[in-house]
Amino acid sequence: METGFTTYNKSEFIETDTGNKVSRLSLISGSQNIVLGGKTIVHSKCTIRGDLRRAGPSHQAAVLIGRFCSLGEASVLRPPYKTYKGVFSYYPLKIGDHVDIGENSVVEAASIGSHVRIGKNCIIGRFAIIKDCCLIEDNAVVAPNAVIPSFSVVAGGPPAKIVAQLPESTQDVFEAQSKDNYAKFISV
Rank of each mutant, 00 (worst) to 15 (best):
I118M: 13
V107T: 10
S70W: 09
E175P: 00
D17R: 11
D172S: 11
L166E: 01
A110V: 00
N33A: 15
V63Q: 05
D51G: 14
C46L: 08
T83G: 05
R126A: 14
K179Q: 12
I123G: 12
P144F: 06
V141D: 01
T16R: 04
K120A: 09
T16A: 13
A62I: 04
G4D: 12
F185L: 02
R54L: 12
V153C: 07
P159E: 05
Y8T: 00
D97Y: 03
R53V: 11
G66Y: 03
A61E: 07
G50V: 10
G125Y: 00
V22Q: 09
D132G: 11
V35C: 06
I34V: 14
S187Y: 08
K161M: 08
R67E: 03
I41Y: 10
V116S: 08
L25W: 10
F5H: 05
V22N: 07
Y8S: 06
S31R: 08
R54N: 11
P167S: 10
D132C: 06
E12Q: 13
L25M: 12
S150N: 00
M1S: 13
A61T: 07
I14A: 08
A183F: 07
R67Y: 01
K161H: 04
V153T: 08
E137V: 06
L64I: 14
C69T: 04
G4Y: 10
C133G: 05
P80I: 04
E15K: 07
V63R: 04
G19N: 10
A55P: 00
G50D: 10
F185Q: 01
S44L: 06
Q32S: 14
P92A: 00
N9W: 01
I14P: 00
K39C: 04
R49I: 11
I123A: 08
S89W: 00
I129R: 14
T170N: 03
F151C: 12
G38K: 13
E168F: 05
S31A: 13
L27D: 11
Q60S: 14
Q32H: 14
I118G: 06
S75V: 15
G30R: 13
C122A: 11
N104Y: 09
A62G: 06
G72R: 11
D138K: 07
I95G: 05
D97H: 14
T170G: 03
E108R: 11
R78F: 07
V87Q: 09
K131L: 09
K39W: 07
R53F: 14
G50T: 06
V99K: 04
S152K: 04
I101W: 01
T3E: 10
S152Y: 06
R54K: 15
I65E: 07
I162W: 00
E2A: 10
A183D: 15
L166N: 04
L36V: 13
I186Q: 14
K21Q: 03
P159F: 02
P79M: 02
L77P: 03
R49Y: 05
E108Q: 12
A55G: 03
V22I: 15
T7I: 09
V22C: 10
F151D: 12
E175L: 05
K184R: 13
V141T: 13
A110Y: 00
L93D: 08
R53Y: 10
S70G: 01
I34K: 11
A140F: 04
S58D: 15
A155W: 00
E15S: 11
Y182F: 15
Y91Q: 09
R67Q: 15
